[in-house]
Nucleic acid binder design. Structure first.
Lengths: 71, 71
DNA sequence: TCGAACTTGGGTAATTAGGGAC
DNA sequence: GATGTCCTAATTACCCAAGTTC
């Protein structure tokens, strides 16, 4: 691995996009970034951007499928 | 340019919304999730989110059995 | 350069989680 | 066995004005 240049494949998501993925408020995503629960990149203007890859991994980890329904 | 992210798993519902749909207490929904009877996604903060698709399926099943058929 | 949509920051309500007992 | 209600702590949601993005 050691891909030091995260680009050309790693799409960046806005707080609003990440928020809709988790069904939370964009402000909540901001808190996650501030708390270090999710990596974030800042634009020169101070806005946050998130790596889609990381977000998807996070979603997968936090997803609990009902193994199967016993009826 | 508002980039829209493809909702990978469909929309997500909050415990309160699911509770309203089933006409039960949110706590009950939590128990269902804890018992693995319904899949759930957790936010990094620990709150649960439910896939609308799955909820509707369960809802449909219960509706089907409303007439109380032979088991 | 203007404009519409979005994000930031803070402060304050509303939900949720978790345990435990009836 | 399953559900609703009690409690406290934590997380999340909505309010605003100002700055950033494209």
């Amino acid at each position: 691995m050691t891909a030091t240049v995260p680009q050309s494949g790693g799409r960046l998501l806005t707080p609003g996009e990440v928020a809709s993925l988790f069904r939370v408020d964009p402000k909540t995503v901001t808190r996650w970034a501030a708390a270090g629960r999710i990596g974030s990149i800042r634009t020169p203007g101070g806005h946050r951007r998130f790596r889609e890859e990381e977000v998807n991994e996070l979603l997968a980890k936090l997803t609990t499928e009902a193994t199967d329904l016993v009826e």
